[in-house]
Amino acid sequence: MSQFSKFDPTAIRIAPALDVEVKAVGDGHIAGYASTFGGKPDRAGDIVAKGAFRRSLVEHAREGTSPAMLWAHKIEEPIGKWATLQEDDDGLHVVGRINLKTARGREAFEHISAGDAGAFSIGYLIPEHGRQYNRDGSFTLTDVDLVEISVVTVPANPRARIATIKSLSSKAELVDLLHEAGLAKTAAARVANAGWAGLNGSDYHQKALRLLASIEAATARLRSE
């Protein structure tokens, strides 16, 4: 159990923002990595360990709740809702949708589209024994209570990217998006040829978003090495 009330805004810690590269914007869907595992410490001196979000995600699922989607960590300014949150080998992958029926949602949508807001940042609590001190002075976060994930303007961690996507209507559009995500044009064509059929179905948006985000995360890691 946490040493703080889970949703006490005065106790929430804010992680440095993650770099974002907006690829395309359609009906408000956004996806990407809200946090990445391992690597160098972020600007706050923290390293997130794989599994750090596991307990919190289980609790959210059990209680039927979700971390808030906020604008710049302002609890009074929700801009949408996160639909899926899942840990994988790279980090915490999230998929959500901005509420374009609200004024703040539309404004956030326009800022993202224009490139004014280009980052994710998480708000979280650290339960007792949730982080470990490292010899180099950094800390490893092993267990956190995930409270919210914000769209913000200041980037910090170049290893994580977020992708937003429009409705894909053709294989050519998928090739273009994969190319923009970091693949060479010929490689993008090969991936699209092999994967287009797998994007069929009611959840093809989320499948495409996860594919793009994974490519971006891998590309960012290569560029940072």
Rank of each mutant, 00 (worst) to 15 (best):
R54K: 15
E21K: 14
I79F: 01
T65I: 04
A68K: 13
D27W: 06
D89G: 07
V48D: 05
A11N: 07
D90I: 11
F37K: 04
I79L: 01
D8C: 05
G51S: 09
K81Y: 05
I79M: 03
K6S: 06
L85H: 02
G96P: 11
E77T: 10
Y33E: 01
L92E: 01
H93T: 03
P16D: 00
G39V: 00
A15I: 03
A44F: 12
W71I: 09
W71V: 10
L92N: 07
V48E: 06
G91Y: 09
T10R: 03
E63L: 10
D46W: 15
D88G: 13
G51E: 07
G80S: 05
I75H: 07
A17C: 13
R97F: 02
T36L: 05
A52I: 15
R97P: 08
L57F: 12
K81E: 12
K50F: 04
S35E: 14
D46Y: 15
H29C: 03
I75A: 02
V94W: 06
S35L: 13
E77R: 04
I79Y: 01
A17R: 06
L92T: 11
D42P: 15
I12Q: 13
A49L: 13
K23S: 06
P41D: 00
V22S: 01
K74N: 10
V58R: 10
V95G: 03
I79R: 00
M69K: 00
A44M: 10
P67A: 02
H93D: 04
P78C: 07
G80K: 04
G39D: 00
H93E: 07
Y33F: 14
V22C: 01
L57M: 15
T102M: 01
K23E: 07
A83G: 03
P41Y: 08
V48N: 05
A61C: 06
W82H: 08
F53Y: 15
G91H: 09
D27L: 13
K81V: 15
T36V: 14
D42I: 07
I14M: 02
H29N: 05
Q86F: 06
R13Q: 13
A83Q: 12
T102N: 03
G32F: 09
R62K: 14
S56R: 06
F7C: 06
D90Q: 04
G45K: 12
F53L: 07
P78Q: 11
D88Y: 10
E76V: 05
A15M: 12
E21D: 05
D8P: 10
G64L: 00
A11R: 13
K101T: 12
K50P: 11
I98N: 03
G32K: 06
G45I: 14
A34M: 08
D46L: 13
L92R: 05
K23P: 09
I98G: 01
R62D: 14
